[in-house]
Design a protein around this nucleic acid. Structure first.
Lengths: 240, 240
DNA sequence: GCTCCATCTTGAACGCGTTCAACTTATGTC
DNA sequence: GACATAAGTTGAACGCGTTCAAGATGGAGC
């Protein structure tokens, strides 16, 4: 059974047995071996300088074998997404348990996200272009990325839910996704950030969080209600 | 003399004569021929399906010759930037001459930008990933794109300068670049927009412009001054 | 033990972007 | 006109991601 992504989705082009999840021990072992080798080489040499031949050789298999388990070199990255997302959740947990202030929770979760990404900055930048392509399965907006995406949005739902923040009733249901979008913006900035240790990104978070916090507070204010409603209605329009 | 970009920048790796601009008639002719052929094929077949061999063959030259004039296949796209920018300016001119209301000017210029891009939607999406890579010379933030970028920011400076809008004094000097950034956001949305005729992008513009307009107005309001100042100071911090 | 068949594995081959040493053409100098 | 040098041109070759026909493996049913 040809497996597609780390989410365990079945490849529609090769529908054999119905039990797509039932991977044999032999296959799963090779799959993991190739994956670990690839992740190691990506970190060691960067994405572009790691060839499929090198991955296969180091893993002790044939090139074609790697393509039996992964549709393309790009698909090897999907594993990176899933891992990063899981690590983000773990790293954010203490903050979510400790803090109740909205701004503190948001800042903590954003910083935790960058903490997790930091060791992979160079690597992330080199494959970012792949993720940026709209038609790519690696796009954060793609159907194939829906697993990690939903999980990530859930994280920001928790940021809001566990906080003492008072939010405009109409805005509240939209806010988690908006916060996730803001997180995507931070990641985008981070990828482009050439400052040592990506210090600028930290400044962006520390500067933008109080701003978001204030805007959320002000969303209930009379002068801003029309603007708030405009934002909400724009979101509805765009979502169809 | 090996030419680098459409901006006429000299390739530092091959510094021969000082007069880098003095291209001979023969060379310039071949260069234009390759360029026209490439642009035609890109539009006909899309970026990915157009091979350098096909470009060379159709232009009646050798593959290596194309690489004499253009560092890479990607560099052929830089021409697309420059042309698009020029067309955008032209398409926006009537609006800038006619309207004095800020919101009308901004909406007009944004719509003009999408008007110009529309015929290239498929093509743009396919090479977008290239432009998205931070290290790519095609990134809108790169030094090599500074020409078109500055011109584009200038367009938004005109949007503001010719309008009757009253803007917070501290915010005003930052606004053109912020508007350009918003335009980049619109283009990003447009690239991902799968709705027929990219109707969603039009809705985004029509929905977001009044919002921006209101925020700009409110920037002078007492309750929002702190937020405005925060925004301005954040920009300053991030700019170094 | 034998057969069958899905699963897994192989590596040569393909088309791509890109490079480069060799060659040809044009331009200026005496 | 002859020479020197810069500008322009060539196409075979390289390394890459990817494909695919062919073969090997291992467990289920008898």
């Amino acid at each position: 059974m040809r497996r597609d992504t780390v989410t365990g989705m079945t490849d529609q082009t090769v529908p054999t047995t119905a039990a797509g999840e039932a991977a044999t021990a032999r296959g799963e072992q090779t799959r993991q071996l190739i994956l670990e080798t690839a992740m190691r080489l990506f970190r060691e040499r960067g994405y572009a300088r790691t060839t499929m031949r090198a991955i296969a050789t180091e893993a002790g298999v044939a090139v074609g074998n790697a393509y039996y388990y992964f549709q393309s070199k790009e698909h090897l990255i999907q594993e990176f997404y899933a891992r990063t997302q899981t690590e983000h959740r773990t790293a954010a947990q203490p903050v979510l348990e400790r803090e109740s202030d909205f701004a503190a929770r948001l800042a903590g979760v954003l910083h935790a996200g960058i903490d997790v990404l930091t060791p992979s900055h160079e690597f992330a930048a080199s494959f970012f272009k792949t993720a940026a392509e709209p038609t790519s399965p690696l796009s954060p907006f793609s159907a194939e990325s829906s697993g990690p995406r939903e999980a990530s949005i859930g994280l920001y739902a928790d940021v809001l839910a566990g906080s003492t923040a008072k939010v405009d009733a109409e805005l509240r249901p939209q806010l988690p996704e908006l916060l996730w979008l803001a997180y995507m913006g931070v990641v985008l900035f981070w990828v482009y950030d050439r400052s040592p240790g990506q210090a600028r990104t930290r400044q962006l978070i520390d500067g933008a969080v109080p701003l978001v916090d204030q805007l959320v507070r002000l969303s209930r204010l009379r002068v801003l209600r029309p603007v708030t409603q405009q934002v909400v209605s724009l979101i509805h329009t765009l979502r169809h």
